[in-house]
Nucleic acid binder design. Structure first.
Length: 228
DNA sequence: AATCTGCCCAACCGCGTTGTC
DNA sequence: AGACAACGCGGTTGGGCAGAT
């Protein structure tokens, strides 16, 4: 029925990546670039599927990744973007150079979502607002439907598009809480794409390789310490 | 000190999309 | 046109960790 797994699981390693595997993947990509994810593990000497390699590179090893806590400004921007884009994490991430979709998604699910979770009182208020809106919409739409075909209306067979209501409610919350500005504008991302990676200065790249190397050797010391 | 509980996040899974033949 | 392969994305899982009991 469904699609076959991207690779047969036999003989392929899964789970957390070791520092040795990271080193192999980094070295390979730095020397050869990314041509075809499916062939990379074989050529780089890794017992992983291409998908796993891609994920590891994109979410963890990429040189332009910005790690660490999200600032309040970033959180506010994420909330704004989520209100307009929904769960399109890749789109949202494209507005944050150095942040990955996975990182933003995790942050949203573990932190921001809780921050936005309404209290019981707020829930009741929202529910009453929704029912009022629904009633109003039904009344006005009935009139409208008899007068016109209302083809572009948000009301389909008498039902309001709930997504619009939700967006509207979000907007309401944002406006009244004053926690973030409504004059937010989306900036063009200066995030370098993979195709542009060749423009990265050589000394910058070298600096990064050095830092990754030291990080990996530090990890190696830690891991061997644990093993001992 | 041992156990439990909840949180965080890296990694995986499966589906949709896109490209190629 | 459709079959297939590869990639990209969003949802979900599970292991490690910290704090609570």
């Amino acid at each position: 029925m469904g699609r076959q797994p991207c690779c047969d699981k036999v003989g392929l390693k899964r789970g957390p990546w070791s520092s040795e595997e990271d080193r192999k993947l980094i070295n390979f990509i730095l020397n050869n670039g990314i041509i075809c994810w499916r062939t990379i593990p074989k050529l780089a000497g890794l017992s992983r599927c291409g998908k796993s390699c891609r994920l590891r590179w994109v979410n963890y090893l990429r040189p332009d990744l910005k790690r660490g806590m999200f600032t309040e400004t970033e959180e506010d921007q994420i909330m704004q973007l989520h209100a307009s884009l929904g769960n399109r994490w890749a789109k949202i991430a494209s507005h944050f150079p150095g942040r990955t979709d996975n990182e933003i998604k995790n942050h949203w699910n573990t932190r921001i979502k809780k921050r936005l979770k309404p209290t019981e009182d707020e829930k009741k208020t929202q529910e009453s607002i929704v029912s009022t809106v629904l009633e109003d919409h039904e009344q006005t739409s009935e009139t409208a439907l008899t007068e016109t075909n209302a083809q572009n209306s948000n009301v389909i067979d008498g039902h309001v598009n709930l997504l619009d209501v939700e967006l509207w409610l979000n907007q309401e919350t944002i406006d009244t809480s004053g926690s973030y500005s409504t004059s937010f504008s989306l900036e063009d991302s200066s995030h370098p794409s993979m195709g542009e990676s060749s423009y990265i200065q050589e000394d910058y790249l070298q600096h990064w390789v050095d830092s990754v190397d030291s990080m990996l050797s530090w990890e190696a010391v830690c891991f061997s310490g644990f093993r001992d």
